[in-house]
């Protein structure tokens, strides 16, 4: 058999779990272990696990809001110079059908007015090189692209 093209190579990791807070925590820890095994460590590993954790928490909190937690799937592919994490679920679509913009919540006010949430999409946008969401036949697919060798943080 001929050498397999990169697009057909086996993923670094493919995991499925129920979208609960404790189950997605296990998924994030498995992601971190898989990245370490692939030689991705330090700041980059931290950025990928944080961004994916935020996306999984969104599925848990909003995707299956008001209904029993469904499944969430994660596939991690190592490309030549990228790490691609694809999440899919059968929960609600994005509000308005589009990715939330991910603005940094305003923390310039008094202590009592400091934001306690709204950081999740900001962090996801900040840490991904590329981000896309599609919804087809009741399934959400979120594709999160990270560099494989450099810290992804944008200024």
């Amino acid at each position: 058999m001929a050498a397999t093209a990169p697009s057909q190579s086996a993923p670094l990791a493919a995991l499925s779990s129920t979208a609960t807070e404790l189950d997605v925590r296990d998924m994030v820890e498995a992601l971190g272990a898989a990245l370490t095994d692939a030689g991705i460590d330090g700041d980059l590993r931290g950025s990928i696990t944080l961004a994916v954790s935020e996306a999984l928490n969104n599925v848990t909190e909003h995707g299956y809001a008001g209904r029993a937690p469904g499944e969430v799937h994660m596939v991690v592919d190592l490309l030549a110079d990228r790490v691609l994490v694809t999440l899919s679920d059968s929960g609600h679509g994005m509000p308005g059908g589009a990715l939330p913009p991910g603005l940094l919540p305003d923390s310039s006010g008094a202590r009592a007015d400091l934001p306690e949430g709204g950081f999740g999409w900001f962090l996801i946008h900040k840490l991904c090189l590329d981000l896309s969401h599609t919804r087809h036949a009741g399934r959400n697919t979120l594709r999160m692209t990270f560099p494989r060798y450099l810290a992804p943080e944008k200024s």
Partner: peptide
């Protein structure tokens, strides 16, 4: 080793609930 946005929010909330 790990704090996500929910953890960050909880640390901020911990400061706010202490009061000025």
């Amino acid at each position: 080793a790990f704090v996500d946005s929910s953890g960050l929010g909880a640390i901020i909330a911990s400061m706010k609930q202490m009061g000025d």
